[in-house]
């Protein structure tokens, strides 16, 4: 097992149907797609193995029905996997007793839900203090802590409001605050911004990045929106029909898609947002030109000035040393590369 891994999933299976454990055993825990279909099982997660490293943002993405939410719920044992192992800080979660599980959830895990899942009969303050309340913390202490977290997510002054009085974005801020109230090590977010308007979504993504820059949690984030995944992820895992098809950094997925499915997914992603000057530069040309660009600048940022001018640009690293060059030619090649492949 990876030492750094906070959560480690080994060969997780989740099948729906009659006596799925027996079926898995009969097929040596490795049934084929045909076998599954023939026996009328619905595969939610198939043989998923993945590590979540301490302090990283792992985004699991896929279309609806791809099993991403199920996999997330297996990680917190909200759903019992049919087969496989889940290690949380090295302990097998599936062997943990009910009491141990409650303890882990109370102190180490926080979760944010797509439709907020706020308790409608409680005020903002009571909602945020809820996880502390079930731990048995006394009222003054927990409300103090809740107030701090509410301040952190920017909802000061709304403590006495009821969820129905808040907008969707504000409600999800309450959701974020509630999940952070216990200072969890691991933060699960299940499509937290999917139910929000596009503008609000962007704002909340920024909010999320701001929080993470302060808190440095280990994060598993579910989304079906590839743009969102690229914006937030350290690593992305792409799921398709219950299988994890590829795990990698955003750049890796775009430049080296493992399957056609991944390629199809990443096709519409504007490369300009993802690739930086370094990844497209002409490495052989190390002449210092008059104009320079930083190696980490995204194409998006440099495109207009490179395309407008007829000259070549030097690519420099952080020490201002020239490591290559970029011109119109490289830019166009990078931006429209897929046309050439077809």
């Amino acid at each position: 097992m990876n030492k750094e891994a906070k959560i480690s999933c080994k060969n997780i299976w989740k099948l729906y149907g009659e006596a799925p454990e027996k079926f898995l055993k009969n097929t040596n825990n490795n049934p084929t797609t045909e076998e599954i279909k023939k026996n009328n099982y619905i595969p939610a997660v198939r043989d998923a193995s993945i590590d979540v490293n301490t302090g990283e943002i792992l985004v699991i993405m896929g279309l609806s029905g791809s099993g991403k939410s199920t996999l997330l719920r297996c990680m917190s044992k909200l759903i019992e996997p049919t087969h496989g192992q889940v290690f949380f800080e090295g302990n097998d979660l599936l062997k943990a007793s009910e009491k141990e599980l409650i303890d882990i959830r109370r102190h180490k895990m926080g979760m944010v839900f797509q439709h907020f899942a706020l308790l409608p009969h409680r005020t903002v303050l009571q909602n945020v203090a809820f996880p502390l309340e079930v731990q048995g913390q006394e009222i003054q202490k927990r409300e103090e802590r809740a107030k701090d977290v509410i301040k952190l997510v920017g909802l000061e002054g709304r403590e006495k409001y009821y969820p129905r009085e808040l907008s969707g974005g504000q409600q999800q801020r309450v959701g974020l605050a509630r999940s952070l109230a216990v200072e969890p090590d691991v933060w699960f977010l299940d499509e937290p911004f999917s139910a929000l308007d596009p503008l609000i979504r962007k704002e909340m993504q920024n909010e999320f990045l701001r929080l993470q820059s302060m808190l440095k949690k280990t994060i598993v984030f579910i989304t079906h929106d590839f743009d969102e995944a690229i914006r937030l992820a350290d690593r992305i895992a792409i799921m398709y029909e219950g299988l994890i098809v590829q795990v990698g950094t955003p750049e890796e997925l775009i430049t080296k898609p493992a399957t056609d499915y991944v390629a199809e997914f990443t096709k519409d992603i504007p490369r300009s947002k993802l690739l930086n000057a370094e990844s497209i530069m002409n490495e052989k040309d190390k002449k210092p030109y008059e104009n320079t660009v930083n190696y980490s600048d995204k194409i998006e940022k440099i495109a207009s000035k490179v395309l407008k001018s007829e000259s070549i640009f030097s690519v420099v690293d952080d020490n201002k040393e020239v490591i290559g060059s970029v011109s119109k030619k490289e830019l166009i090649k990078a931006l429209f590369a897929e046309d050439k492949n077809e």
Binding site: G110, A117, L119, R178
Partner: peptide
């Protein structure tokens, strides 16, 4: 009751009675 609300309860670490 929406599944999510129940899950929120479980993830907060509620016992059965809570």
């Amino acid at each position: 009751i929406s599944q999510e609300i129940k899950e929120a309860g479980v993830m907060a670490g509620c016992t059965k009675w809570q």
